[in-house]
Nucleic acid binder design. Structure first.
Lengths: 228, 228
DNA sequence: TTCCATTGCGAGCAGTGTACGCAGTGGTCT
DNA sequence: AGACCACTGCGTACACTGCTCGCAATGGAA
């Protein structure tokens, strides 16, 4: 119910806690980085921390709280690049940095997409984003829209990139796995344009597509935001 | 391992199946629409279908298969709008239609983002997308990049919109819940720009932001794709 | 020194995905 | 027609999940 950021960490009385929110978050992040977000269960995190399973509930009140802490932990560890004043360049740098954090912690994009986070780490990033669009002649509302557009595109792009990467997606391997189904798509005339693109996409430079889609998408959006 | 689309539905011998893949998918979609994707468990779906729990595994080989079928079911039920030939208009219409399906089935965006789907329904949509960017002078690679940019933006935007909606996000209510933490953000000088935007965003027109962010984002991306 | 809020945590509950094995069914072949 | 056996539905069971409850131990405040 009540956000974890509104509750104090330290209690006034009683025995000293053996751990801390930060330590719990760090253990969870370590686990998620190494074995994926699905490996992050309360039992596994507790084990990683060297604590009893239900002891975690002394530091947070639900697994959702744990996810909030994880997101904030990585955003604090990797703070946003300092703005230089060149707005277009700053926004591009922020976009690249965001993508980099999300690729470094492959669970981050999905977790962030599914729940708004408003911890100190997120706020610092948000402050930097807003700084980068400040002075462009936008009112508060337009600033939010501009930053929102960029962030949403980044999230979508990285999610797609990771999904493809996670499934070990390789057009040639995939075609072989699909067998007759894949052949039917490429050979049949039911989806002629899909078939055409699939044949072309088998080329060797297919691996760079995610990178280029991202860069070009950011530029297109910047075109619309930074006029001049 | 092997995609469900590559396996035949009907067996040559033996008793007639009491259900079908389509019926299983329909039951799951009904459940997800009514109670959210978390309500979609094999037991619940089987109950909805009037079958034994593990009977489902006669129709699909894992829950992932079920998710694939669900995505394809709604994309078949709601096929893409026919292209008119006006490429910019067609792309805008496709973007709106995609957003509409995702809002109608709030679980769709998340499921689609986390796993590439290549069922007949997805392929029909993809074919239509490619049709809309055909004749713009793009090669196969650039077409994929253009469509990808749009789709990723749409996914990200809807995910954000749904996350905000799901948490019943209301800036005023939220501020009250956060108590001192929220006050500290808005009153303090640690995040001045965030504080400023938060104060402005409390206005009455805040509800339209998602819609406007989406529409503007699409236009910006179209600016970059449809030159002239 | 007493008090009691707070701690760590074992036991247990309701839920999950799915492997396995069994009885029954009904097309295919002799 | 009769036998075969691939296929069906599905009950049972297992290892896992998030989380509640209750209890003994701790240590700052009174």
């Amino acid at each position: 119910m009540e956000s974890i950021w509104a509750r104090p960490e330290q209690a006034a009385r009683g025995p000293r806690p053996a751990h801390s929110r930060a330590a719990v978050a760090a253990a969870a992040v370590r686990l998620a980085d190494a074995e994926g977000i699905d490996a992050v269960s309360m039992r596994r995190v507790a084990a990683e921390l060297g604590a009893g399973t239900t002891s975690l509930y002394r530091y947070l009140s639900s697994k959702d709280d744990l996810l909030d802490l994880m997101v904030d932990a990585v955003l604090r560890e990797q703070p946003p690049p300092e703005p230089t004043g060149d707005r277009r360049s700053d926004l591009r740098t922020l976009a690249d940095a965001t993508r980099a954090v999300m690729l470094r912690h492959p669970w981050l994009a999905a977790v962030q997409a599914s729940r708004p986070n408003i911890g100190p780490g997120s706020l610092h990033w948000m402050e930097t984003w807003l700084t980068a669009v400040d002075g462009l002649g936008l009112d508060a509302d337009e600033m939010l829209t501009a930053v929102g557009t960029l962030q949403l595109f980044i999230t979508g792009a990285v999610l797609g990139e990771l999904a493809v990467r996670a499934s070990g997606f390789d057009m040639n391997r995939w075609m072989a796995e699909q067998g007759s189904y894949g052949d039917a798509i490429v050979a049949g005339d039911r989806y002629p344009r899909v078939a055409h693109v699939m044949r072309e996409a088998r080329g060797p430079h297919a691996g760079d597509r995610a990178e280029r889609t991202f860069a070009q998408g950011v530029e297109r959006i910047l075109d619309g935001i930074v006029t001049g």
